[in-house]
Amino acid sequence: MLRARRDEDVLVLAAATCLWGLMFLLPWQLWEIVTGRASLHVDAALVTAILYLGVLASGGTLLLWTYGATRVPVTVAAVFLALIPAVGYAVAALTGEALDLGKTIGCVLALAGTLLVIAAAPSRLPKV
């Protein structure tokens, strides 16, 4: 679907996608409210988290992913998805979680696989 809209302005495409995504999330929110499952304890930590998740982790990544995924072969975009847990582990390790040999090897493999896929498809990627 992203490929079909690759000539669209990236910012416009990300904004329109986000708006539709929000619309489709509203019935879930309504269901939580109606069934009494909705909960909200507002404090500074939650506001900071929602701002981070909204601006960077949702808006920012939607923009970056829309731009990147419309300009690379599917294999390249796909292999980046494997890096998410590897980055998650690296972040946890950097913030104090004990290192695990198997997980560290997994991170290296995920990174090596990503670099291999990128190296195999250089001609189709525009250069800065």
Binding site: A15, C18, L19, G21, L22, L25, L26, W28, Q29, W31, E32, R37, A38, S39, L40, H41, V42, D43, A45, L46, A49, I50, L51, L53, G54, V55, A57, S58, G59, L62
Partner: peptide, 18 residues
């Protein structure tokens, strides 16, 4: 601090606004 829908909708209200 927030239920899944509240958190998800909250983050996308912020994202859509930006």
């Amino acid at each position: 601090m927030a239920s899944p829908a509240v958190l998800t909708v909250g983050r996308f209200i912020v994202a859509a606004a930006v």
